[in-house]
Amino acid sequence: MKRWIAVLLALVMLLASLPGFAEDKYSTLLFDYFDTATSFMGYASSQQEFDSAVVLVEKELSYLHQLFDGYHLYGEMHNLRYVNENAGKAPVQVDAPFFTLLSLCKEMYEKPGFNRVNIAMGSVLSLWHDARETGILPERSALENAALHTDFSKVILDRENSTVYFEDPLVKLDLGAVAKGYAADHIRRVIEPILPSFLISLGGNVYAGEKPLDGRKKWGVSVQCPDGIPSIQPGSDILEVLYDTHMSFVTSGDYQRFMEVDGVRYHHIIDPVTLMPASHLRGVTIVCESGFMADYLSTLLFILPYEEGLALIESIPQAGALFITADGTVSMTDSVAAIAYTHGASAR
């Protein structure tokens, strides 16, 4: 009898030693949210298990998409458009995730050196948004007039009542620089307990969870090569691959959303000082745990001159960056080099 117990025990140990024995990689693409494609993948024991995680992802994405939509109203929901239309008249109560995002932005904005990301410059950004739709550049005078109503200190947040109020009724919020990274943080908290080994990309805002269950120790996240910059190998359009777990990766670049007028490229990341697209970098990728922070910092570092951005990122121990400067030079902080393919890192 005892002999069979021993054999059984050994068999149990054998099964336990099979990493991810019954887990397969599943993936899906979702198109309905944040005007981009969301790619979600993870290791599950069955299609049903994965699908039930997708349902939760979609529920969260759908809610946050509506909440941070500046163009549509959804019933009685106090979303971004509702706030922009009403917070100049009286304080508007908003859901906790909305209030938290505004508080986080304000906290960051008030740090020395962090105020080149201003979510209160919606009136300026909407002129650039219209320009990309029509193909006609905004008038300088229109930009300057709009810039008169971008004072973040006129956005009053009342924590006790969870309300937002604009002391300047012409202020408009634009959450484009932070909403997707923040949304990725929310989805992570929902998915981690049920499907820990997953990766999500909200239009380039990536969060990689626990290690993949196929023998690898890390997820691999590629950084796309801007045109005219050498890639890792001839015939590739990958600039770098970064390998890690429990980490956010966010890239801001001039090569995704832009318009061209008379051969000049005007992309979508606007410097609040010049009111024009920032031009110091081709792209910057931020690696840090928080998706919100990564999203915020990628916009900030894209706007700042390279040396200023480098000094700033080096003052934040928990974040790293990969820069592609305007002349095509690629550089990265030590923490990013440590997980980069071109510096010898791999998924194993």
Binding site: L29, M41, D214, G215
Partner: peptide, 23 residues
Amino acid sequence: CLPNRVDAELLIENTGDSFMPDI
């Protein structure tokens, strides 16, 4: 194709390649 919501994907056997990026 994002505007038309069309995706064409080469099917591969995932065996945990040490280089291959996931995204």
